[in-house]
Design a protein around this nucleic acid. Sequence first.
DNA 1: TTACTAATTGCTACCGGTAGCATAATGGTC
DNA 2: GACCATTATGCTACCGGTAGCAATTAGTAA
Lengths: 344, 344
Amino acid sequence: MINRDGTPTINDVAALAGVHKRTVTRVMNSSSKVKAATRAKVEQAIEVLNFSPNRQARGLAAKRSFLLGLVYDAPTLFINDILKDTLGIIEDEGYELVVHACHYPSENVVKDVTRFVKRANLDGVIVLPPVADIADIGKELQKAGCPYVRVTSDVSDETSRLVVTDYLSAISDMTRHLVEFGHREFGFISGPNTHLSSRKRHEAFVQALSTHGIELPAEMVVEGAYTFDSGLMAANQLLSRERRPTAIFAANDEMAFGVIKVANQLGLKIPADLSLVSFDGTPFSNFAVPTLSTIIRPTGLMAKLATQKMLAQFNSGSNATHISETMISPQFEARESTGPVPGR
Amino acid sequence: MINRDGTPTINDVAALAGVHKRTVTRVMNSSSKVKAATRAKVEQAIEVLNFSPNRQARGLAAKRSFLLGLVYDAPTLFINDILKDTLGIIEDEGYELVVHACHYPSENVVKDVTRFVKRANLDGVIVLPPVADIADIGKELQKAGCPYVRVTSDVSDETSRLVVTDYLSAISDMTRHLVEFGHREFGFISGPNTHLSSRKRHEAFVQALSTHGIELPAEMVVEGAYTFDSGLMAANQLLSRERRPTAIFAANDEMAFGVIKVANQLGLKIPADLSLVSFDGTPFSNFAVPTLSTIIRPTGLMAKLATQKMLAQFNSGSNATHISETMISPQFEARESTGPVPGR
DNA sequence: TTACTAATTGCTACCGGTAGCATAATGGTC
DNA sequence: GACCATTATGCTACCGGTAGCAATTAGTAA
């Protein structure tokens, strides 16, 4: 009876249960009423045949693919974490996750992403930074009728489609921590200026310093690229000045590793001669010697929120509790790399 | 004329081009003959409508999904690299990549994976270590009729479905490097014994040492878990002995980071007092202070090979050159963490 | 028991492609 | 110009589900 290639279809189930396939559909989608006895028969047939519906056929008929997309730039540790948690949630909901990497600072990212969702027939897509920082992506996806969630610090969109990172509070905590240690001369190693996250971190740092009446002179700001090598170069630049900062804020962990290296080469002890803080809180920030005082992003929570907001766009009619949360607040964690200002 | 939801279908194209949809199919799959003029008309219509075929319908009719799977345990940096390169290749071939994480040392991994390929209607799947180390996964996938490639160091399968890492040559190079530096007392921090990769690295190390007439005493071998914390514990164990090794081989980078930390705490200088080598060659091995002498896996090549072998299973009839390569040889790279044995 | 309404279940037309087979158009050859 | 072999194109039946509507059965009140 079974299909020639071994995979049972809904017809096989219907035949075995002695009902029409319309009834099998009913049982599966547990929508309309089915008599208990009938339901039992069908469920048993499904069990016996080990039947699972063909996603293609289902998608074609129901105009859904049960495929969600995840779009990012390069797979970093941060992306890893998000990926892991997202996957855990959506598979439970019966979706599969299709990934797509695109090259960020490029003219055609928006087109690339829309082509991807169309090509893969996605039911929805979660866009991660830095790609998500492009407000136009939201507009285009909306135009294409594709549900989406942007994980970003840009807020030019409805909150139901955003998971926003708030840089202010953690960076202000971190700044206070350093100021209380007596630091007044700061250095900042930014990410690429093309990245919104970097500009926001910079902005938040300047603002936090100003509440303490401290300025961040232009020569104390060096643009990096979120990479180790750029961290090396920036650290060299900042630490070879005659008047060097007593504390450096690196906009991500990887660049902070560069600072550690340069400090070692220059014979500067961290935190005795130089305090160092970073952003991200990847596991590696704990592996460094000394361990990095850093700002930790709650990736698990971010993934959970993004996924819930994604799913909420399908189940809008259902009893899905409305998700009001949008703001994500990373937490500053003081570890070994920060200490009192030298000579204090 | 266009579909209500804006997406043009093959019928729209046919109508616009003034031909039958069968002809459109012909043009798209460029199989049978179509008159040049007709082909041009169809191609223009496709262009004008910006038509792209519905993956679901195509898959349903052609019994293919154009979806490939990638199965792993936890998303590590290694997985990231593979992911990136795999994605680059298969998207060019018209496939999308669906990812799936499963919990490795667990009874039902095999079932989990087969359920995944079935549920997602995959055309094929690439299985990464440690999941790929389970020979049964190959058997089950074969039974399920699902093309696959295992990236592993197990060889109980046809080479056309394997990408095998050879641990011997790189580990023997590494060992020679240390022996030439005068080292005779070695410590080894393994990964979990449940992981084939760990057992193989161990085995290769023992063998390499033996060619130099050196033994690796049981008390100099500590089982880790491929994690930083386990590296800490293992290093503490090895370095707190009255007779401690002069060189330690950590079975991955992350555990080597733990060794660096412990060495620092104990006031041991690397490489002056202790030489350290690791396995993986993740970017972070270069960020450490000192930089890690490590064995670098050619992840790009591995991904490329795996993907090619995957695709070759579909295009078996085509002109795809037969891929004979199966063995992957990582390379040892001496960096700062290794040096002459103390007191020499 | 009958009539009538509500609850179940069956029939069928899609969804948007693919591919076998039939038919029409084209091209040579004598 | 007729005839036949090719070549190009059209017709149609699926693929395996979903969901609107019709038909049937069960349930309840009169």
